[in-house]
Amino acid sequence: MDHAAVLALFDRDMREDAQPDGPDTRVERVGGVVRQVSSARGWNGVVWSDLDETNAQAAISEQIAFFSGLGRDFEWKLYGHDRPVDLGERLRAAGFTAEPEETLMIAEAAGLDLDAEPPEGVRLLPVTDAAGVHLVADVHEKAFGTDGSRLREQLLARLAGEPDTIVAVVALAGDEPVSAARMELLPGTRFAGLWGGGTVEGWRGRGVYRALVAHRARAAVERGYRYLQVDASSQSRPILERLGFAPLTTTTPYTYVPRAA
């Protein structure tokens, strides 16, 4: 895989030509910035920018004013190769908070081990209804220790309005949900995004995560997607590298919370 060429393709498909990630969202191109605007429960933020030292500060101020006017928290999704080189410093100086850095990892879906099965006693359940969505959100809360209500609402909306753009799956040990993950599919792109992948403590390191990756990779190949993309944490990066994913750059979410009036 030509890393530079694939990264350029990712930038074009998934960032510069970004599509809304839900039925209640829109993508806007304003100057050198591409942003997604959603409801307060959806994802609001900047997905791509083409800036330099002469216009970066003005663009940052414009986005703060725009989202603050809507009363929305928002995220500026900064990649390691974005310009100017001090864009992260400029965002922090403007009041953004940097979340933990992750690694953008990409693999050719057909080149992965698609035969990986879950460990004995674990079965994979495709999520097609509200009951399955609640299982995904419950696993998310247990695995990551965060509130799953926003994820629950987003998955329900996607299944109801755009079911062809989402693949979600839960791993069950008996009747107990022990891991869950989803894949987001944007028509017209060559990339399928892997998200979630949370496994509850006690089931980690037993091959469940690997099986969830293989399940989604098979679904991506069946639907004609060439590449799989993951924003990998430091915990999942070694697993993904062993599966055949390549690290292409870093990605850091910078979040901004409007000041109270």
Rank of each mutant, 00 (worst) to 15 (best):
R242P: 01
A131H: 13
E222K: 12
V46Q: 03
G121K: 06
A214I: 01
V127M: 02
A217P: 00
D175Q: 08
G224W: 06
D231E: 14
I239V: 14
A192H: 00
G71T: 02
R15H: 06
Q19F: 04
A217Q: 00
Q57A: 14
G71C: 03
G132D: 13
T250L: 08
V6W: 06
R29N: 07
E16Q: 13
P84V: 12
H3Q: 10
L9D: 02
L172D: 11
L159V: 11
D147Y: 12
E28D: 10
T25F: 04
G80E: 14
D138W: 14
R72A: 11
D115V: 02
E162L: 13
G193W: 01
G197P: 01
L78M: 04
T97A: 12
G161P: 12
V257Q: 12
Q63D: 08
L159A: 10
Y209L: 06
E162F: 07
R83Y: 07
D231T: 05
A260M: 08
P23K: 01
S68F: 03
D175K: 07
I64R: 04
E99Y: 05
A181G: 15
T54R: 14
D82H: 09
D164N: 10
D138R: 15
A109M: 03
A211N: 01
H134I: 12
V27A: 06
R259E: 14
D115F: 06
V133C: 08
T146F: 09
L51G: 04
E153T: 15
D50C: 07
A157C: 06
A116K: 09
P118S: 12
A58P: 11
D2A: 03
Q19C: 07
E102V: 05
L155N: 12
D11L: 05
W48T: 01
E201I: 11
V30Y: 03
S39P: 00
D113K: 09
L185V: 03
L194H: 06
P187I: 03
D24G: 02
R92K: 13
P100R: 10
D73A: 14
T255M: 09
T146V: 15
E16N: 04
P238D: 07
V122I: 15
A109D: 00
G132F: 10
I60Y: 00
